Amino acid sequence: MTTPPPGAPVLPGATPSFYDQIGGRPTFARLVRRFYEGVAQDDVLREMYPEEDLGPAEERLLLFLEQYWGGPGTYSAHRGHPRLRMRHAPFHIDPDARDRWLRHMRDAVDALELAPLHEQVLWDYLDRAAHAMVNTFERR
């Protein structure tokens, strides 16, 4: 079963996607923008982003999260399968980097002021994903 495009009418009895339930693109764009504001100020995480401008990374995360949560499939159309662990393998992601990532993402999630159930669902995923990206226990 495919998810209808954002803004499409929801048929009676159908459940809107999580993406639509929490406000679609504007909500995810606010989340990602706030997160990267924190990353820009973080000396450990910032060095993992080779671009001078964090804009391309911000766009990639936005597209990924939109697709994951039932929004448009633009991420896969442009970048293929997410392969998150493979794409993050070149970076030194130790528990400190994970915790910094989570700290900035926690701030971003809190800023959305979602309903408690939506906040918990989103946070559970982000927390699991961050732990899954750890690829070394060697300190810098």
Rank of each mutant, 00 (worst) to 15 (best):
L62I: 04
E66H: 00
G80W: 05
R79M: 02
L11C: 03
P56W: 00
Y36C: 00
P16I: 08
P72E: 14
E37V: 06
T74F: 02
P26C: 11
L62G: 04
T74S: 11
G38R: 06
V32N: 01
G71C: 07
G80D: 03
V39A: 03
Q21W: 04
Y19S: 00
L63I: 02
E58L: 12
P12L: 07
Q41I: 03
G73Q: 15
T27G: 01
E52R: 15
H78Q: 15
S76V: 09
G38E: 07
L11G: 11
A77K: 14
E66R: 09
D20E: 15
Q21R: 14
I22A: 10
Q67R: 10
S76G: 14
V39M: 04
G73T: 13
G7W: 01
P12A: 07
L63V: 00
Y68S: 00
E58T: 14
A8G: 02
Q67C: 09
G73S: 14
G70W: 01
Q67Y: 10
H81S: 10
F35W: 02
L65P: 00
G71R: 10
E52A: 15
A14M: 12
D42K: 10
L62W: 00
Y75E: 12
A8P: 01
R60F: 05
G23I: 01
Y36V: 00
P9Q: 05
G80S: 05
G23H: 02
G70I: 05
L65E: 01
R79C: 04
L62F: 13
P16G: 05
G24P: 08
A14W: 07
E59T: 15
E47I: 10
R33F: 09
Y75K: 08
F28C: 02
